[in-house]
Design a protein around this nucleic acid. Structure first.
Lengths: 335, 335
DNA sequence: CTGTTAGCGCATTCAC
DNA sequence: GTGAATGCGCTAACAG
């Protein structure tokens, strides 16, 4: 509550000197410094960051836009983003779009209003155009927003191939593929590579397209119910973790044995994929690295440290689980 | 980038008039208003929120402190808090303490620096004293921080009793209770009521105390391993969702049948409790309501709308699942 | 080394 | 109705 002026008065010096003393900028004799520190302590002085922000035209806040914090992938992504930002002296402001693109837009507007210094977006609702209009720092995860906005993502294409290899190894012949639909999104790559590889071997691949902003567990559960009702003869399923887990649950409920009767592979290898029994075999994204790279790319932009590449692709790997027979690369099944 | 002064110049009026016109405060003739709006559009004017913040000494940001965003309970809590804050025109800043109380302290300091208008804390690391020192609005979830800080939480005591009833109904005689340890925390109530009720019926209750800031899945998994190694004869388990799910997984891995051989009850009824098979029987907190009440209580304080009660306890209910035989209140087992 | 001054961009008096 | 002046609290440039 006490201002710098009051401290100056109390210490019998000018405000400039107080500012220098407390910020360690510029020369201040150790004697007056002592006086100032004492006065500051006495008045319980805390600098008002709002005034600093105005002067520097910077808040030290980064906005993070995700579709749904309750989805385990985004929860852990935001967690690691926050941790990395904190390390670098920034704070994290979050936005759940929950499928409402107006909310995405509003947070984007905060860039112009100088409320945030930059934005990391992992949401796919708003028109690409709206993002392209912005001139301030933005980094995108998994969706191409044009040449001016750096894109970070994992190698979904390779992920799809790895999943296909697992399915072939297990001898599966009729697969259900649960995919999302959203243009310019890297996740599409995994479905196309998977399908191509499987069909090249004469395997049937049926496709369920879920609405792109559908992240509720219930929606996945209902979808799983439908799949098993309409296609009781499938012997393999590939989809995002939640879709895979919902199918695993449903398969068990129908009395099917996993992995003997049906193979299930997820994508992301989120925490819940380790909770189910048997543990879900899945393609793992390195979320921690993804967060770290996204933050550093954004801060390179914000602080104009250096030029950044437009596209950064991270590697994926197999999370060995118990939902596919005869694991890849000679790894054992682990429950 | 354009300031209010430039707009005033462009429109040939004073800055005060521009401010009034654009904010709808005070009288402005519709004629000059038109001129101003045109000038603003031409210059693509956006008000700089930093200047506004300084003037009003308010940011419209609320800090939310949680132990671990990757824990499904806190992920959904933060999700709903953010949604409610958004409805009321506020933004959400998050802090993962990940067990480090220094981080909790630093976010608390942002209150004094005016970076946030208030704080909702659901983390239990930092000393209560540090919170009591604060004079600005704070609301606490599940932990008593003294008479000046409103406390919101669910009825853990009733939750413990409901769990005990379920266990007794299932005829269990040797229970393992997984509890946390942290003083002043409401969650302790559920363990004491549960134990009291069970022991009154002559049931043995063994107790595993996990470190209070331990929220990793791996820690729960290892704990489950140990429980089954050291106490292969137990026939019931009660603990937080993650502990319960880890035990369910481990029981299945050991070849036990759930719920025939052992009953498992969780607390919170988070999303993963619906993913496992069979679905976890659990005591459900109404997270959405918890978030709503916390936000409204905090904003009552921030905006000095009205006085708030010091203690608000929300009801709990049973999530019917498939991990306890002979469900309560005649509800059927649902997988 | 230190005090004074001039903004940062906006919102609100108060004269006109 | 409207413009000019004042201040929110701080930092940085400048003169001393």
């Amino acid at each position: 509550m006490a201002s710098i002026r009051e401290v100056a008065q109390e210490a019998g010096v000018g405000v400039g000197t107080v500012s220098r003393a407390l910020n360690g900028s510029g020369y201040v004799s150790s004697e007056t410094r002592k006086k100032i520190e004492k006065a500051a302590r006495k008045l319980n002085y805390t600098p008002n960051e709002l005034a600093r922000n105005l002067y520097h035209n910077k808040t030290g806040i980064v906005g993070v836009i995700v579709p749904d914090l309750n989805h385990p992938f985004f929860a852990s992504l935001v967690k690691y983003i926050e941790m990395e930002l904190y390390e670098q002296g920034y704070k994290t402001m979050i936005c759940n779009t929950v499928g409402i693109s107006r909310r995405e837009q509003e947070y984007l507007d905060m860039l112009e209003r100088n409320m945030v210094d930059g934005i990391i977006t992992a949401s796919h609702g708003l028109e690409v155009e709206e993002y392209r209009k912005q001139v301030k720092p933005i980094v995108s995860i998994d969706r191409d927003l044009g040449p001016r906005i750096p894109l970070i993502g994992c190698d979904h294409g390779k992920g799809g191939e790895l999943a296909a290899e697992l399915m072939l190894q297990a001898g599966r012949r009729k697969i259900y593929l649960v995919s999302g639909i959203s243009p310019n999104v890297m996740a599409n790559d995994r479905y196309s590579t998977f399908t191509r590889r499987m069909e090249a071997q004469g395997v049937t691949v049926l496709n369920e397209i879920m609405e792109w902003n559908m992240f509720h567990w219930d929606a996945h559960y209902k979808m799983a119910e439908e799949i098993f009702r309409n296609h009781p003869d499938i012997d393999g399923i590939f989809g995002g973790d939640l879709a895979a887990i919902a199918c695993l649950h449903m398969a068990q409920r129908k009395g099917l044995r996993v992995p003997e009767d049906i193979s299930i592979i997820g994508f992301d290898a989120t925490t819940p994929s380790n909770m189910v029994y048997p543990r879900l075999t899945a393609i793992r994204q390195n979320v921690e690295l993804l967060a770290e790279v996204s933050v550093n790319t954004l801060l390179d932009l914000v602080e104009q440290r250096k030029n950044v590449p437009h596209r950064l692709i991270l590697d994926v790997e197999i999370q060995s689980g118990g939902t596919v027979l005869g694991e890849f690369f000679g790894k054992n099944i682990k429950n």
